[in-house]
């Protein structure tokens, strides 16, 4: 069953007199429990697609279904609700708030979800999942890059999201930490988590079970069988 269905999605921007077609007729299904990697050169529309899937933006035309509900025309507040309750984000630059403690950072989506759940307990559970419980009262500045990214993953997990979006999650990490993060993602997917990964790194993309290739606002093709046979082609597109 599809978690997200995109039907002929277009996103056009006006830049002066010119209309930029960032996305031009995307039709795509994200199945529940799938693990996809979005690949594409800069300016391909990859980021715009991420923003749409992450409820940070809305399409100019076309239809987007999330969990069976039409979400193509949502108010800003409603989109914020989806971000707080249904999605988890992992960013390249971690994006932790420097003045909050690790625990408070992880708890943040729950604060905005206005949940009555035991926020601190859930946040501690999420931190345990990424093996970071020993540093809950530290500040992000006191942590290494790999540790910060694990905290960010805990924050993405804390609201038990239907979908995790990871935007270049390994871009700022060394090889050892890349492995660790990717193992964590693999484990999450094995537990049934739906995950979308945006990356430039082909080795990282190898972990995904399908590839979404974006170019000039169009999908070039997605393969359910695994990314291997697409790699030469995808590799060229990275240049």
């Amino acid at each position: 069953m599809a978690l997200i269905e995109l039907q002929d999605i277009r996103k056009h921007y006006k830049m002066g007199d010119e209309t930029v077609k960032a996305l031009d007729g995307i039709t795509l299904n994200i199945e529940i429990g799938s693990y996809s990697a979005v690949l594409g050169p800069s300016g391909s529309g990859k980021s715009t697609l991420m923003h749409l899937l992450g409820f940070m933006d809305f399409p100019t035309s076309g239809k987007m279904l999330f969990d069976g509900d039409d979400v193509s025309r949502l108010s800003a507040a409603k989109r914020a609700w989806y971000r707080a309750n249904r999605l988890g984000f992992v960013f390249q630059t971690f994006n932790l708030l420097p003045r909050l403690s690790i625990l408070e950072n992880v708890r943040l989506p729950l604060d905005y979800a206005r949940s009555d759940r035991k926020k601190d307990d859930l946040a501690k559970e999420a931190l345990a999942r990424v093996d970071m419980t020993h540093r809950i009262s530290h500040r992000p500045g006191q942590l290494s890059g790999g540790e910060r990214q694990r905290v960010a993953i805990a924050r993405a997990l804390v609201n038990n999201p239907k979908l995790i979006l990871a935007d270049e999650p390994t871009g700022n990490l060394d090889t050892k930490n890349v492995e660790r993060v990717m193992e964590l993602f693999d484990a999450l997917v094995d537990e049934g988590q739906t995950l979308i990964l945006v990356t430039h790194d082909l080795e990282v993309a190898q972990h995904a079970r399908s590839i979404i290739l974006v170019r000039d606002g169009h999908l070039v093709g997605g393969e359910e069988d695994g990314p291997e046979d697409r790699f030469p082609h995808a590799g060229k597109e990275q240049q």
């Binding site: 992450g54 940070m56 800003a76 507040a77 914020a80 609700w81 971000r83 707080a84 309750n85 984000f89 960013f91 994006n95 932790l96 708030l97 943040l108 989506p109 905005y112 979800a113 924050r155 609201n159």
Partner: peptide, 16 residues
């Protein structure tokens, strides 16, 4: 601005 962006990304509404 970045803090505001992060807060919004994890679910803060304009009113928050």
């Amino acid at each position: 601005i970045r803090e505001i962006g992060i807060r919004k990304a994890v679910g803060a509404r304009g009113s928050d």
